[in-house]
Design a protein around this nucleic acid. Structure first.
Length: 804
RNA sequence: GCGGGCGUGGCGGAAUUGGCAUACGCGCAGGAUUUAGGAUCCUGUGGGUCUCCCUUGUGGGUUCAACUCCCACCGCCCGCACCA
């Protein structure tokens, strides 16, 4: 007999499906009465390392879902494309001189070949590429809309800077405070950057989570990332100056316990009051030292908080008028809550440590703890708080807020951890920001009819040494006429981060060739929002949140048809290497999907990745598991060819196949692929032992159920055992619930909660019968040993528990 | 450090969401077949002082009943804003 030979059958069916255009989504009028289903996977960054087995996991999973949905009659859109801009291609170009567009195209070709070899049912006619000018024309258009609506602005921001390479560094390129390339201590450099006001959307980004179906952990992580915090703003006046300090606190009830103010070292008050600071030389030194550290190190990794007193500066407590010191502290960050905190050593742990270290006074204002031992951070009753003494913390917060508001010294305030989004990159391989700087007119947007602003083709990508993008060196590109006044002007030389293209790529799939708009309103309205988006947990707070923001903005200006882009979001776990570590070229532990396809077949790879463990959990690669899956597919192949083709299935075979039908139908939708595959294994084990009982009806049904997971094998066997047409033109099988239900159960009999006997019975057995049967069991009699049951618990269809 | 998640045999995991702990697969052992190896097939496989007892990271709690719920601790993984 011939054996299962994936190397032969897989290319054959891939060609057949492609030639017959099985996977093209139908637009609007062509779609008839079918309901639309837009399934989305994160498009890959086409790296030089090729497709990762992690991509296969996510793609195989959604592929199985969409194949089932197509068989159920849905009009499915399952597209793919390339997130083609990015730092690695540029770094590769600096090293080798090969243009990023060349290496990127080469990588795309490789990825495309790899994806096609997996037999994924993508609609290749809708492929998008973020580095294609026809695509990024619309990325730039979105930027212009944000600019015109006041959501894009420029400001100076410190970036990581290598003083030797004279280049800005991504956080990832700073390893232990040093430049990844040359090992020099990295510093900071202030550079003017484009920013997006995502903070304006903070509340909506939280609230609208109520209307979408995301995994709960994804919602929680997004909410925590946005970090909405209701508190109080209080204004402290600076002595002998017209300056004032705004601080944010969630514990305004402790304001009578303030013994100092602490500012972030980058706070602008330091330079404003420089003349009044008697130790300003030391203060400057301190600021320089703090600058060398990343914010992450400052706030989190340093065991010791550091700080310095601003000598000669005094602030007035707005409620008590008490004079207090002003300090700088590295644990205060400039971007949150105004970059200033009131220090209450008695009732905040960080303040407690700081005050202990620098011998600052403690003042207890909430009763209940022992502040000689540790900070008391709970709510309680106020003491030493003038008129507010005796109030509870909750009441005091409300009353002090009202009091501050009346006096014009602050009031209720809401702060977010979420910060505005730095959108500039000083790199070559990204979308040019479509802005022109005119000496006379200032910042002028490129007129929309002049989009796209194409990336000029250059020979050199070396950094300019000034912190500017390599584009700044191309004078013939940079120097332009101002679109407003016609005078001399310069192009913006910053490019966009790679989020820019991935912010909206899924919208482009709806109408990928459109040159008049990012998509026709009709097509966008038909397909959006995405019905199901699967991706990695690592994208929860950046890509997922960013793209929701951009989509909401587009909705506000009428360019998107719904308030949310993704109706449902699920997430797959990472695939680690056989050593339990992340795969990386440098560790030499990368699994190449090509090798697996070549040796075992694409269906084996797909089924293995779905079987290997729970879909949402990280898991290590195991080649023995791959072999086991191949063994199973071999067994299934032989079984189908050996079973009695013309016999009717026995009752038992029928019940089992209907139960499998139910299980697979449910497991695909709930992404419990691992138990789905084990269900097939159980059925195949049964059928292999009972070949005479297993007829063609059961086998056909099994093949239909299998087709979303192992499409090539299912198609091959479907046609081989004499069925007409492609298996993917068939209807998804419907199970008979009566057949799928077990007709006999093991009724568990427990004594004191421990299983002591099983009685085979009808699932509908009544309480009386079950209890009688339990007491009648000789085993149970033996266990009871003459004792009278105190209580008997009956759980229908499950058990009887006798308590003695 | 902060936020999120996870922890079950030698290994990956299952357990109808509070009701038989260890389905299915891997590995291992024995047997069949084979000149041999591989492959394939059959049987067995949580531990122990084995009619019984113990076992779901550790310790406690709730319950007739806990892998599942609650509290504390330990360990691992993801993210932390210029990687994608």
């Amino acid at each position: 007999m011939e054996n299962y030979n994936p190397q032969e059958i897989e290319p054959k069916w891939q060609k057949y499906w492609e030639d017959n255009d099985f996977y093209q989504a139908k637009d609007l009028t062509e779609s008839g009465s079918a309901k639309k289903f837009f399934a989305l996977v994160e498009f890959p960054y086409p790296s030089g390392e090729g497709l990762h087995v992690g991509h296969c996991r996510s793609y195989s999973a959604l592929d199985s879902i969409v194949r089932k949905r197509r068989m159920e009659g849905w009009n499915v859109l399952f597209p793919i494309g390339w997130d083609a801009f990015g730092l690695p291609a540029e770094n590769f170009a600096i090293k080798t001189g090969i243009h990023p567009s060349v290496s990127t195209q080469k990588n795309i070709n490789n990825f495309k070949r790899q994806l096609k070899n997996l037999g994924l049912s993508f609609d290749w006619k809708r492929e998008v590429n973020t580095s294609d000018p026809k695509y990024y024309k619309w990325t730039q258009w979105i930027f212009l809309q944000l600019f015109k609506n006041g959501l894009a602005y420029q400001t100076k921001i410190p970036v990581n800077w290598c003083p030797k390479c004279l280049i800005g560094l991504a956080n990832e390129e700073v390893i232990g405070g040093k430049c990844e390339r040359c090992g020099t201590q990295a510093s900071k450099k202030e550079i003017k950057q484009w920013m997006f006001q995502i903070t304006k959307y903070a509340d909506r980004l939280i609230k609208d989570l109520d209307d979408v179906d995301y995994l709960e952990k994804i919602k929680i992580q997004q909410k925590d990332w946005i970090g909405r915090s209701e508190g109080t703003e209080a204004i402290f006046k600076i002595d002998g100056s017209d300056q004032e300090l705004k601080i944010f606190t969630t514990r305004i009830d402790t304001i009578f316990g303030v013994t100092a103010l602490v500012l972030a070292p980058e706070h602008n008050l330091v330079s404003i009051l420089e003349k009044n600071i008697s130790n300003s030389a030391e203060v400057k030194k301190y600021i320089e030292k703090v600058r060398e550290k990343t914010e992450f190190e400052r706030v989190n990794l340093e065991k010791e908080r550091t700080g310095i007193k601003l000598e000669g500066i005094w602030a007035a407590n707005p409620v008590s008028n008490q004079k207090i010191e002003v300090w700088l502290g590295d644990y205060v960050i400039g971007s949150y809550g105004g970059g200033a905190v009131m220090m209450v050593p008695a009732h905040d742990r960080r303040d407690y440590d700081f005050a202990k270290k620098y011998n600052l006074p403690f003042k207890e204002v909430v009763k209940g703890g022992d502040i000689s031992k540790e900070a008391f951070v709970d709510y309680g009753v106020l003491v030493n708080s003038e008129n507010f003494s005796g109030e509870s913390s909750e009441e005091a917060i409300k009353k002090i807020q009202i009091w501050l508001e009346e006096k014009g010294l602050g009031g209720v305030s809401i702060q977010y951890k979420l910060r505005d989004w730095i959108f500039s990159r000083q790199h070559y391989w990204g979308e040019p920001i479509p802005i022109i700087h005119c000496e006379k007119c200032g910042v002028v947007p490129v007129p929309e009819d002049q989009l796209p602003v194409e990336l000029p083709f250059v020979e050199k990508y070396q950094p300019t040494g000034t912190g500017e993008s390599p584009l700044a060196a191309i004078t013939e590109w940079v120097n332009v006429k101002c679109p407003k006044c016609g005078g001399p002007a310069k192009r913006e030389t910053d490019t966009m981060p790679n989020w820019a293209g991935s912010n909206w790529y899924y919208m482009r799939y709806c109408d990928p060739q459109n040159d008049q708009a990012l998509g026709s309103p009709e097509k966008l309205k038909y397909w959006l929002p995405v019905d199901w988006y699967n991706g990695g947990m690592e994208h929860t707070t950046l890509h997922l949140l960013y793209s929701r923001f951009i989509y909401k903005f587009l909705f506000d200006i009428g360019a998107a048809p719904s308030p949310e882009p993704y109706q449902k979001r699920t997430s797959h776990g990472m695939i680690l290497s056989y050593d339990g570590q992340k795969m990386s070229k440098s560790k030499g532990n990368v699994i190449n999907p090509d090798d697996i396809v070549k040796e075992y077949g694409a269906d084996t790879l797909r089924v293995y990745e779905l079987f290997m463990g729970p879909f949402d959990q990280a898991i290590a690669w195991n080649i023995q598991g791959v072999k086991g899956v191949r063994r199973f597919l071999d067994k299934l192949y032989n079984l189908v060819l050996e079973c009695s083709p013309n016999k009717e299935s026995s009752d038992q075979a029928q019940r089992l196949i209907h139960r499998l039908n139910q299980r697979i139908t449910q497991n695909i939708e709930s992404m419990r692929f691992n138990t789905a595959i084990s269900g097939f294994m159980e059925f195949v084990n049964f059928a292999a032992d009972n070949k005479k009982e297993t007829g063609k009806d059961s086998l056909n049904r099994m093949l239909l159920l299998l087709s979303p997971f192992a499409p090539h094998l299912a198609e091959e066997l479907w046609q081989k055992i004499g069925n007409q047409g492609s298996i993917f033109q068939q209807k998804w099988p419907v199970f008979d619930p009566a057949l799928a239900q077990a007709q006999k159960i093991n009724l568990i009999i427990q004594v004191n909660g421990r299983m002591r006997d099983k009685i085979e019975s009808d699932p509908e057995i009544s309480e009386e019968e079950a209890k009688a049967a339990a007491l009648a069991s000789p085993k149970i009699q033996n266990w009871l040993n003459g004792q009278q049951p105190k209580q008997m618990i009956f759980v229908k269809g499950r058990l009887v528990n006798i308590v003695v």
